[in-house]
């Protein structure tokens, strides 16, 4: 399990990445995050909705009411054009971050030498 402090800055990017693959709603997104990380990271409800709120405010995503499933009218989210731009920017930033951290903290590659 990863601590939520370390990953805090990436929640927005996670959600944007998943929404890039298609519109989705709260539970499906949090389940996807947990499954893809083999249960190493679980996003908390309030963290996720804080992120939704931030992304919405910045115009990176749009919310719309989905169909009623099992009597519940869920909110669905869709990524916007601006959101896509922001995501690719974040992707580049992450590649650089990973490189920098690896170069200093060192990955397993270095220890194997």
């Amino acid at each position: 399990m990863i601590s939520s402090d370390v990953i805090r800055g990436y929640n927005d990017t996670f959600l944007l990445s998943l929404l890039r693959e298609g519109d989705s709603y709260g539970y499906a997104l949090s389940k996807e995050i947990r499954d893809r990380t083999d249960g190493n990271y679980t996003i908390k409800e309030t963290t996720m909705y804080s992120a939704f709120n931030r992304l919405k405010k910045n115009g990176f995503i749009e919310a719309y009411p989905g169909d009623v499933t099992q009597g519940k009218k869920r909110t669905y989210y869709r990524i916007t054009e601006e959101g896509c731009h922001y995501l690719s920017e974040k992707k580049r930033e992450w590649a650089l971050t990973r490189q920098v951290v690896d170069q200093i903290v060192g990955g397993e590659k270095d220890e194997n030498h």
């Binding site: 709603y25 709260g26 539970y27 949090s30 389940k31 409800e45 309030t46 909705y49 519940k72 009218k73 869920r74 909110t75």
Partner: peptide
């Protein structure tokens, strides 16, 4: 109100799973 509905729905889904 929508927020509460959404969060509750998520939690119930998680519970059922």
């Amino acid at each position: 109100n929508q927020l509460r509905t959404d969060i509750l729905a998520n939690m119930e889904d998680k519970y059922n799973e």
